[in-house]
């Protein structure tokens, strides 16, 4: 997909999910709030980042060697947004909602701009921190006898916990399969080169 289209699609998607109707629908349940709204906003922002002019990307890259700053932005943002208080606050105060959504956009853009420069080792380090965190938070959500958010039901919280653990596992499997595929693919290509 070319840059222009990515930017247009990103902006379009952002505008769509920012409309009050869609926003409220996504915030109706706790698992939807964290596992549909968060990835959608980050995804739209990632598309937008993909459509950024090369000139700006170059300037950003100077501050983002090996994608370290960017992955930090994503990691720190997600860690903060997983504090249960954030969900309640975002529902109660428009300012907090705005801050939450801005942070998600930043995190999505940062992830897109940093993933490739990071390379395998840093990607592994990033996922090695993020996925266990997701798993632990998910486990806390399923095991807590108390409601952690006043705005959501206990069943909903348990569901979110299970989904978080599941999602962490899926991301880990997908990334590992991709790595395995890439490495074997490269090796076969190299060996076939030698044979020729």
């Amino acid at each position: 997909m070319n840059k222009c289209w990515q930017a247009v699609l990103g902006i379009g998607l952002l505008l769509f999910i920012a409309t009050p109707g869609v926003r409220h629908a996504m915030e109706k349940s706790m698992w939807c709030h964290m596992l549909v709204q968060f990835p959608l906003w980050m995804g739209a922002a990632a598309l937008l980042a993909g459509g950024m002019p090369a000139r700006i990307c170059k300037v950003i890259a100077r501050w983002n060697m090996y994608g370290i700053s960017g992955l930090l932005i994503t990691g720190v943002t997600l860690a903060v947004l997983m504090i249960p208080r954030v969900l309640d606050q975002a529902l109660l105060h428009p300012k907090m909602e705005l801050a939450k959504l801005t942070a998600l956009v930043l995190a999505g853009m940062a992830l897109r701009l940093s993933w490739r420069p990071a390379g395998l080792i840093l990607q592994f380090f990033f996922l090695g921190n993020m996925l266990p965190m997701m798993g632990v938070v998910g486990w806390l959500y399923t095991e807590s006898p108390l409601r952690l958010c006043n705005a959501y039901l206990l069943d909903d919280q348990i569901q979110l916990g299970n989904w978080l653990i599941g999602l962490a596992a899926v991301i880990a499997i997908v990334w590992l399969s991709w790595i395995t595929w890439r490495i074997t693919y490269q090796e076969t290509r190299q060996t076939s080169h030698r044979e020729m």
Binding site: A79, P84, C149, N150
Partner: peptide, 16 residues
């Protein structure tokens, strides 16, 4: 600082 502001210096995690 965002996390410490949200959690009153890491004392609390929920809005309640």
């Amino acid at each position: 600082s965002a996390a410490s502001w949200l959690t009153y210096d890491f004392q609390i995690w929920t809005d309640e």
